[in-house]
Design a protein around this nucleic acid. Structure first.
Length: 259
DNA sequence: ATGGTAGGTTGCCTA
């Protein structure tokens, strides 16, 4: 019954104490991390290995950076999203572990709308769809877990009007995510909690957004049909967001039946 | 119309 979690830590260095506490308490089998903001060399391997995790990192200096942690052996690691050899941003790492294929995904933010960054976001999502299509051909259990920087529906946002012009909620961004879902992937959290409101994974640091529950749901685990067949539970763990020195994101966790 | 917060390749860029 492996559990797979996604957690945008907003700097692994700044978040290390909180992350270690959370790993020790929640004990997820596989964890996809985003926004490490460090190189592979600078990644704090030891304290995480001491909690029983193997680690695969794709980092860069200062920004972005993704990793996979797993209690099982990590095999067949792919660093970087295929489809653009010019792209140097560390936003995608994929591997086989714990009997499933897993990717840690950090979709570009894309603000401001209409900028080069927005075009990059849409192109990146299109490349992700291409990779998802390749992965689907293997007919294995696959989990694409990460910060998608897309609010799928109005229900995933405390105030849709306030986000209407934001790259996270623009129709183009939502359509790009939907294009992946339409090819047979499911949003694990929404599949098990179809009506639930206020199911957020991100609250801005500014303006007391967390205390007011002014959040958005942008961290997702997309499941291939073979993984969806095994989906048992999906939940948002708000505890890490309550702590001092919290990330602005909080983890989402799914549990899959044994395959 | 501004600034509010947090992190980093810090006195500005990204989120």
């Amino acid at each position: 019954m492996p559990t797979v979690a996604t957690f945008n830590v907003n700097s692994i260095k700044a978040r290390l104490p909180n992350l270690l506490d959370w790993l020790a308490a929640a004990r997820p089998d596989v964890v996809c991390l985003q926004e490490l903001k460090c190189t592979e060399e600078a990644f704090p391997r030891e304290p995480i290995e001491d909690l029983g995790y193997n680690i695969a990192v794709f980092g860069q200096r200062g920004w972005n950076g993704v990793a996979i942690l797993s209690r099982s052996r990590i095999e067949d690691v792919l660093r970087g999203l295929p489809g653009d050899p010019e792209d140097e941003q560390a936003r995608y790492i994929e591997a086989f572990t714990a009997g499933i294929r897993v990717a840690s995904v950090y979709v570009p933010n894309g603000n401001p709308v209409g900028s080069e960054k927005f075009a990059y976001k849409l192109a990146w999502l299109e490349r992700l769809r291409g990779r998802a299509r390749e992965l689907a051909e293997f007919e294995e259990a696959v989990v694409l877990a990460g910060d998608f920087n897309v609010i799928p529906e109005p229900i995933d946002c405390h105030d849709p009007a306030a986000w209407a012009e934001d790259a996270l909620f623009r129709p183009e961004s939502r359509r790009a995510l939907r294009a992946i879902l339409h090819e047979g992937w499911i949003d694990a959290y929404r599949a098990l909690h179809p009506e639930e409101r206020n199911a957020y994974t991100f609250w801005d640091y500014q303006g007391g957004a967390f205390q007011l529950d002014h959040g958005i749901r942008i961290d997702h685990l997309l499941l291939s049909p073979e993984a969806a067949d095994r989906l048992e539970e999906a939940r948002i763990d708000k505890e890490p967001r309550r702590r001092p020195k919290a990330s602005d994101h909080t983890p989402v966790i799914v549990r899959l039946r044994d395959g």
